[in-house]
Write a protein that binds this DNA or RNA. Structure first.
Lengths: 323, 323
DNA sequence: TTGAAAGCGGTACCAA
DNA sequence: TTGGTACCGCTTTCAA
């Protein structure tokens, strides 16, 4: 039988109120009484019921995080780790869940959280959904590197991928590449934007290519191998590290040397970048800054809606020759 | 202002009880009344308060999972993904947190969860701690691949690492290796046990070695390179994939061919195993079976304490020649 | 078919 | 310094 304030009060022969005061060390209690109460509480193994407290105080220390379903990307998991670390510093507890199949299921999930969760962070979102319907739910919402249909109503913290991609392409050029390609699935527009931004400012004797494939995986990078060779590309930026590592395998099979024959850069800065031979240059996400800003916003939810963007950062490794 | 049953009852001019009945589709309500109530509830965006329900019904759909602090192991994160997937099937929501520094902090954390969380899964644990003190907390406890001091009081689901290691070593022998080593940090006894089990049954003309290093990381595997060469090892099992990939780098630098000169196997079946060239053979954890058993136990907590163990499984890839 | 009311376990106001 | 008590929102029993 779990101990409650009432049980302790009865056993100690005092009121509930006095028990409460004693437990929180309020000094408006006679020391002997407080001591007796504390002793009983300890013996009975009293722990306060968080549900009851949440109900009464209308507050909570739990932060829900919505992530991608069975997320295959290492980078997202690292990001969640980072989030947990920073929330923990402020005694906030993350409640993870994956984004449900449809909007109705999401609403059902959020209803399950009503009264338990103070903030919900969307680290995944379906851009077709009507986020406006969230607004009557009694919790704070934050979009984490995702943008809903009606952004003016929500706090949004996002990653500027373009800046890192731009830096990567410039590094390829600086390393002497003269036929540079960007390779990725159609629709990843922020990377494309960074690529084009770099193209504008680079020397006019460099030729640029855009290579498209079906997905973001190792097999897709591998599959682009023949086209990269055919077009005599000497520097290639892949939209994901996994694609880049897929190309590594192709290069290895054909005796193509990296970076001597072709310089390579990826995106996400997966752990595998360092394992790879040669170590893969990549663009890192600004997780720390992003998460810190989010946690600040959770602790101080008042005022206007906040929109903030954070720059990604290129990390040069062996896969690009030093200029 | 968040809608409550009371508000809806007042607006509809009926009692709280009737509102409750209407909302859950109880047919003991006059259709017109039910319709009026539902309309108001929809307009007001009513959602039930989970904290209040938990308090009243003394039940919850939230399962806490304690994981390693800033876990560097990909395999643990995959395991958590798997857990979330299976919990979700039964409308249970995982609440993740990392294992606090000390036992007092853990107790504080669990107190924060009292009344909100029905089960706590320890996917990380400090074996020196007195788990017995958990027993008076009003929740179910499950140890996930961890063993507390007083195992007789707790549900324990664990991984039999020994079987997979044994299979790996036998595969090395079958591929023609005659000087086989196990490499790892001191104290990883379950892997050692599997190694020794294989040694017992293998041909007497095979020589076995045990190589020790400081940690489980890439650098440790790399650092063992010289000793592996000096001892003329032709088949090596590393306690982690990361160590194996560290050795890959050493081999690449020295022109040592894998698997022609030395066959290699790892443990954990990280994603990097497939990226690696040649693809790294490894031992996979029995996540699915383990997690399914845990979820069954959460749904049916009654009866005696359960202890179950699940066999790990060796996956042969390019890093070991086919016999 | 409907409603009044008693809790679940804390918190906090007000009065003694 | 202490106690009585209302209340957070929901569930459920019992009576009307």
């Amino acid at each position: 039988m779990t101990a409650t304030l009432k049980m302790i009060a009865e056993e100690a022969g005092v009121s509930i109120r006095t028990v409460g005061r004693s437990l929180r060390g309020d000094n408006a209690v006679t020391p002997e009484v407080a001591e007796r109460v504390l002793k009983i509480a300890r013996e009975r193994g009293y722990v306060p019921n968080a549900a009851a407290r949440s109900l009464r105080t209308n507050s909570s220390s739990i932060v829900g995080i919505i992530v991608r379903k069975q997320d295959p990307f290492e980078v997202s998991r690292r990001c969640i780790d980072c989030m947990e670390k920073h929330l923990g510093k402020h005694n906030l507890h993350p409640l993870l869940s994956s984004l449900p199949e449809n909007f109705e299921a999401l609403m059902k999930l959020l209803q399950e959280w009503t009264g338990l969760v103070r903030t919900v962070i969307f680290a995944e979102w379906d851009s077709a959904w009507q986020a406006g319907k969230l607004l009557h739910l009694p919790m704070q919402f934050i979009f984490f590197d995702r943008i809903p249909l009606n952004p003016e109503s929500f706090n949004i913290f996002s990653i500027d991928r373009s800046s890192g991609v731009s830096a990567a392409v410039k590094a390829l050029a600086a390393a002497g590449c003269r036929r540079i390609a960007q390779a990725g699935a159609a629709g990843t527009s922020s990377r494309r934007e960074g690529f084009e931004k770099a193209v504008e400012v680079l020397a006019p004797d460099i030729r640029f290519f855009r290579l498209e494939c079906a997905g973001p995986d190792m097999a897709d990078g591998y599959g682009l191998g023949p086209e990269i060779i055919r077009r005599k590309i000497d520097g290639v930026f892949f939209d994901t590290d996994r694609m880049a590592l897929g190309f590594y395998r192709y290069a290895s099979e054909r005796g193509i040397r990296i970076p001597e024959d072709i310089a390579v850069a990826g995106f996400d800065n997966d752990t595998a970048c360092i394992y790879a031979i040669p170590a893969l240059s990549s663009v890192a996400h600004p997780h720390e800054e992003l998460v810190q800003a989010v946690v600040r916003r959770i602790l101080e939810p008042g005022g206007m809606v906040v929109h903030q963007s954070f720059r990604s950062c290129f990390i040069a490794r062996e896969s690009i020759k030093r200029p």
